[in-house]
Simulated assay, not measured.
Amino acid sequence: MAVMKTVDKTFDKTDPLRFTETGRKAENEKRADAEATLVRLEGLAHLMDAAFLIPGINRRVGLDAVLGLVPGLGDLAGVCLSSYIVYEAKRLGAPRWLVARMAMNVAFDGAVGIVPLAGDLFDAAFKANLRNVRLLRSHLERNGGIRPTVIDGTAHRIDG
C-alpha cells in the first residue's frame, strides 16, 4: 500500500530557502518586478546619456547634455532625473555603499556640468546614468535579484 504525502502550499517561515510553493511564487514576483524596473531604468539611462547620434563625429549624447545647454536649470533638471535612478536602486534593496557610489556619480556629473561649455562637453562624455544602471545590474545579478544576462564560465567541447 502506497502512502500519499500532502504538500502544504502555504509559506513556511521556518524555511530559509523558501522551498514552498508560495515562497517560490513570491520570489519570482519580486524578481520580475526588479527586472521590469531595471529595463525601465535602462531606457531612462539611454535617453539621458545616449539617445542622439551626432552626425559626422559618430558620438552619442543624451538629454542630459542637451539640458546642460540651458544655464542653471538644465543641469538641475538633469541631476533630478539622474537621482531617480539612485532612488530606484535604493528601493530595489541596493546596499548603502552602492547607493552612495551612484549618488557620487550623479553629484560629480552635476557639479562639473555647471561649468559653462566645459561642463557640457563633460556631460556628453561622462554618462553617469549608464554607469549607475550598469552598477545596479551587476549588483542585482551577483546577488540573485535578477537572472544574469551573461553566464560566466568556460565552455568545453566534448567529441564523442
Results as ranks from 00 to 15, higher is better:
F126Y: 15
L67P: 05
A125Y: 09
R91W: 00
A118G: 00
L117Q: 07
A125M: 13
T10A: 13
A100D: 15
S82E: 15
E29A: 12
A124P: 01
L53Y: 03
A2M: 09
V99W: 05
L136E: 03
M1L: 09
V115Y: 06
A118Y: 08
T14S: 14
V66M: 14
V86N: 06
S138G: 14
R91C: 06
D75N: 15
A2T: 12
D12K: 13
A111H: 04
S82N: 14
G110W: 04
A111Q: 03
G145D: 05
V3A: 12
L17W: 10
L140W: 10
V66R: 09
R96L: 09
N58S: 15
D109P: 01
V115S: 01
V39L: 12
T14P: 00
R59D: 09
P55L: 01
A2S: 13
G145C: 05
L73P: 02
D75F: 00
A100N: 13
I85F: 00
E27F: 10
G74T: 09
I158K: 11
A26I: 11
C80R: 12
D49R: 05
F52N: 03
N132I: 07
G119C: 05
A94Q: 01
R40H: 06
V79W: 06
E42L: 07
G119W: 03
V70C: 12
L135W: 08
K127L: 05
N28V: 02
R157N: 07
I146A: 00
V150P: 02
I57G: 01
G62D: 05
K90M: 03
G160F: 13
F19A: 08
V112D: 01
N132A: 07
L130V: 06
L98N: 07
P55A: 05
A107L: 15
K127F: 02
A26V: 11
A155E: 10
G110F: 04
L98G: 08
A128Y: 10
R40P: 00
G72C: 10
A45T: 03
T20M: 03
L53I: 13
A89E: 05
L76I: 14
N132R: 09
F122G: 04
S82V: 00
G93S: 07
T20W: 03
I85T: 11
E88H: 05
L121M: 12
